[in-house]
Nucleic acid binder design. Structure first.
Lengths: 195, 195
DNA sequence: AAAGCCATGTAAGCTGTTACATGATTTT
DNA sequence: AAAATCATGTAACAGCTTACATGGCTTT
């Protein structure tokens, strides 16, 4: 997995981590169908799904598990390994570097962080916010050092303006998300009689 | 070209359309270098560049042109054909359908529209604005019909909120762009003594 | 018995990345 | 003469899409 930082493979790994007794391709495909929350963010055809399962097995992050028998077609059940859990946790803690990756990769991280541990989701959102603020600052620097005296310069300024606007929008969205996450967290703790 | 709606191939076609006497791969690569306006939006390695030139030739949108001789390494000069110009113009008039395509594909269209005809850029920006407003309205509909009673619903609402925010940011950016384009247009006409 | 769902894949083809091969000309 | 630049590609590989092949089980 060192070779690939793509979200699809981690999404498969994440889905496996949510299924205590392991799961199989067709079952995971149901979780990725349109209508399901992950399906709204990521499209993954059956072919690629089985491909990723094989790769996860080769990487030692998933292992074949015994299938409790029954009257159904034969199927291959996988369970996440300890190495897989560690890789997933590492991935869930690292923010994406570019604003354009918020739409897909960050949302996949967020989905699993929320499912696995609300506190992890808060940490992820906070460090993502910091990363995007760095991106914003460096875009501002680009804008200052560009000149708009010719047509090409005007075009470049519009490009940078778009990126600044999209980045600050993402930061504002992260702020609203953090309010939601922290509210949900304190509500959860309050319901359990904690301060 | 019917098979591909990707911006890279149209970018090559667009660059050819800006060079009256035709151009060759190495020359086009200079226009796509980082630092050049297009290079800030699109990355295109030499291998793909020559590949696209071949495809444009096969599609009848570019044709080999005689190279005025001189003491330099042999090179293949291409010129855009009439069919190529028509395809380019059609492409430059059609807005992108999704907000995520603004960052790359729309910016490439905008670049060539500004170079070829400022009025075309205004038309493109206006119809792109309309398209994004449709996107915005349909996202609002998604948000109304989603419920936030469980964790999955909350996640989905955050996803839709992000898309709403990114889309309205893009619309606002298009408004600012239109002000610039129209100012430049009227300044240009005024300088030529037109109303 | 036919239709449909469960379940796992394969095959072909396109897009794109990285690295390198080849050789000509110009500059130092 | 060596180094840099001009100029065009090829080879290998990675990732993804689309379509289809295969067969078991369940429902009508």
């Amino acid at each position: 997995m060192a070779r690939s930082e793509r979200p699809a493979e981690y999404a498969v790994l994440g889905l496996l981590s949510l299924e205590e007794g392991g799961s199989h391709g067709y079952d995971l495909a149901r979780h990725l169908a349109p209508g399901q929350p992950l399906g709204a963010v990521l499209r993954l055809e059956p072919g690629m799904l089985y491909h990723h399962l094989k790769r996860l097995e080769q990487a030692g992050m998933a292992a074949p598990a015994p299938d409790r028998e029954g009257n159904r077609p034969p199927r291959q059940v996988y369970r996440i390994t300890e190495a897989g859990r560690e890789a997933l946790r590492r991935w869930l803690q690292s923010p994406v570097r570019h604003t354009r990756e918020i739409r897909l990769e960050f949302l996949v991280k967020l989905y699993f962080a929320m499912q696995l541990d609300p506190r992890l989701a808060v940490l992820l959102a906070r460090s993502q916010r910091e990363t995007l603020q760095d991106v914003y600052a460096s875009l501002q620097e680009d804008r200052r050092t560009s000149d708009d005296r010719d047509a090409a310069g005007e075009f470049l300024q519009s490009v940078v303006d778009l990126r600044l606007a999209q980045t600050s929008t993402a930061i504002a969205w992260l702020d609203a998300l953090l309010v939601r996450l922290e509210l949900a967290g304190s509500a959860g703790r309050a319901a359990m009689g904690m301060p």
